[in-house]
Design a protein around this nucleic acid. Structure first.
Lengths: 206, 206
DNA sequence: GTCTATATCCAGATAGAC
DNA sequence: GTCTATCTGGATATAGAC
């Protein structure tokens, strides 16, 4: 199973990966052209093919990275020795902060997975994440802290939803709730770090 | 502002719109080809241009429709004479049911809006939805029913998030939580109609 | 209104010079 | 390794016959 090797990437290869990440995440696989990526990287288009041979291969390299950020390292937070409250706060804070830095990430991942779910099977395996344990810990942790039992899968989805959706739906929310004012939107999302946390506490009776 | 007219659409035009909806919503603007749409409609490609002149025009017709479904008619539910609890239940039930029938809708809307937010301004105006009143009503309704005050905009986003996200993230959730078993995923989403409702009640102390 | 044929363009991909 | 030049296919879009 461990057929990975570590290689040192050249300067150019790094430039390409950076550029490809930016372009793919913003435009999606179908909307991005190899010319776009070459321009962004400041190199010749043929070089892309020299290093990656096909658009698809370059894309897969990017997609894997992106998926790793998107599926947060729940294990680390949930399996830590903190109280449930602290864990929840840490998770929401860190995840929303990460998403604010990568605002296009959610829509990119959701769109590409919806177009080509096949990619997922292999990618998930490489992640090595098994959520079952995490879920059991969550549910037990809540009850032991005196909270109300709530199905762990639904709780996890609720948490992710409340963090991810406002980032994914930025354009429509900015328009609908803030008349297009971007600063108000940013402020709103920052507020959510505290408000989502409180919402979860109340819902779980913690 | 009212420069709309009502026209009767021909059989062929309806076939085209149906096909275009299916193809665009599944593949996105960049991923869909006019040939795809012609095939789906069972007609000649040139006919598409006869009726809509440009891919973009055909797309806009579809997008407008889709946006209307995606921004639910909150007004109707919220402004009704029911109790807050009933309103919440009705909203979650109806919205999740609609999304289950249109599983690609969320990602389609989010992706296209993220690619071309310009389209939004005009589309929103045509919707004629002003959420401010709705929001005030929600907040007041909760407090008057004996619940805990919670910022209405955040409440609205939480509700939408918990309904929309599990549909948008179907592939990854099916894989991560149900080892790829589709029926279990479907079952899970149906359960949410009740569980999201209860989650909201508890969080609002209702 | 509906079709066939075709023009035009652009994107992915390769060949080969340096 | 990096570039220029080029091939090839497929996509948008139009012309014109029926």
């Amino acid at each position: 199973m461990e057929n990975n090797i570590t290689i040192t990437l050249s300067e150019t290869e790094l430039k390409i990966l950076d550029a490809a990440k930016k372009v793919f995440v913003e435009k999606g696989f179908d909307g991005a052209s190899m010319q776009d990526i070459a321009n962004e990287a400041g190199i010749n288009k043929a070089l892309l093919y020299y290093y990656f041979r096909k658009k698809e291969f370059l894309f897969k390299a990017i997609f894997k990275q992106a998926l790793h950020s998107f599926i947060p390292n729940l294990l680390q937070v949930i399996q830590s020795n903190e109280t449930v409250r602290v864990k929840l706060k840490m998770f929401v804070d860190n995840y929303i902060d990460m998403l604010l830095l990568n605002p296009h990430l959610p829509v990119f991942i959701l769109h590409e997975l919806s177009r080509r779910p096949e990619n997922l099977v292999s990618a998930i395996k490489e992640l090595g994440v098994n959520p079952t344990l995490v879920l059991q810990n969550m549910e037990k942790g809540v009850v032991e802290a005196g909270g109300t039992a709530y199905p762990a899968k639904h709780l996890l989805v609720n948490m992710l939803a409340m963090c991810i959706f406002p980032i994914a739906a930025k354009p429509i929310l900015t328009m609908l709730l803030f008349s297009g004012n971007d600063e108000e939107y940013q402020e709103f999302v920052s507020e959510r770090k505290q408000l989502v946390y409180e919402f979860l506490l109340k819902a779980l009776n913690l």
